[in-house]
């Protein structure tokens, strides 16, 4: 049986009308933006299932755009996020698609940059404002953004996992979960921790051999 806090029941504090179609959508987009990184000139939202069917009435479009602009699920500016994106010259598009066997509230966000390749993320809003990110640039993941999380890409070689682990243990961090996937000799690591990651540990990990990409994400309040 899941252990609840009263704030899971009385909460989240959020912009309506729907915790899954609005609050969860905002949170999903906000986290996706953190992972993809700033500097994009366009975001294409591919909406699947119930997201595709009802996004207008639920304001899912506004919530998603609010999220990629950095708004939290309780930010009252979400209502006018489409205008804000226009002011910032960020191009937005929505498309209704079939993403296959995924949760009915799923969206694929494609971030477009002028100076680098597209970055895409697929995630689902699974109810009560909770989310799960299931794919990052083609890598299957399973990441709920409830805990501070480290993303790492590196040229696959032996020892990286234990090197990262030892940096965390020296700096007194407890690893809650760690998952590594490999594709074409590039490894992606997603590591969830029990407490917020500090700059010193990030710096040490960044300086390890063969690290291609590092990003730490702190949880976004629900």
């Amino acid at each position: 049986m899941k252990d609840y806090s009263v704030f899971d029941i009385l909460g989240p504090i959020m912009i309506g009308p729907s915790s899954s179609h609005t609050a969860g959508a905002a949170r999903l987009a906000r986290i996706s933006k953190e992972i993809a990184g700033d500097g994009f000139y366009k975001v294409a939202f591919m909406l699947h299932g119930s997201f595709a069917k009802t996004y207008k009435g639920h304001g899912t479009d506004k919530a998603l755009v609010g999220g990629i602009l950095g708004m939290d699920p309780d930010d009252e500016n979400i209502k006018t996020s489409l205008e804000k994106a226009e002011e910032k010259n960020i191009d937005i598009s929505f498309e209704e698609v079939d993403l296959g066997y995924v949760h009915p509230n799923t969206v694929k966000l494609i971030f477009k940059y002028r100076d680098k390749e597209d970055f895409y993320i697929i995630g689902s809003s699974i109810g009560g404002g909770n989310i799960v990110i299931v794919n990052i640039n083609g890598n299957d993941v399973n990441f709920t953004a409830d805990k501070p999380t480290l993303f790492l890409k590196y040229k696959d070689r032996k020892g990286v996992i234990s090197e990262v682990g030892s940096i965390f243990s020296t700096n007194d961090f407890n690893i809650a979960s760690m998952k590594v996937t490999r594709e074409k000799r590039i490894a992606t690591m997603i590591c969830e921790l029990d407490s917020t990651i500090d700059d010193k540990s990030i710096e040490s990990i960044k300086n390890l051999k063969d690290i291609l990409y590092i990003k730490s994400i702190n949880p976004i309040v629900r």
Partner: peptide
């Protein structure tokens, strides 16, 4: 307020947020 994209506390959900 909820249906107009205003701020509410889900209690226990957004749909039922008016009762408490």
């Amino acid at each position: 307020v909820n249906a107009s994209m205003g701020k509410i506390v889900a209690a226990p959900t957004a749909g039922a947020s008016g009762i408490l």
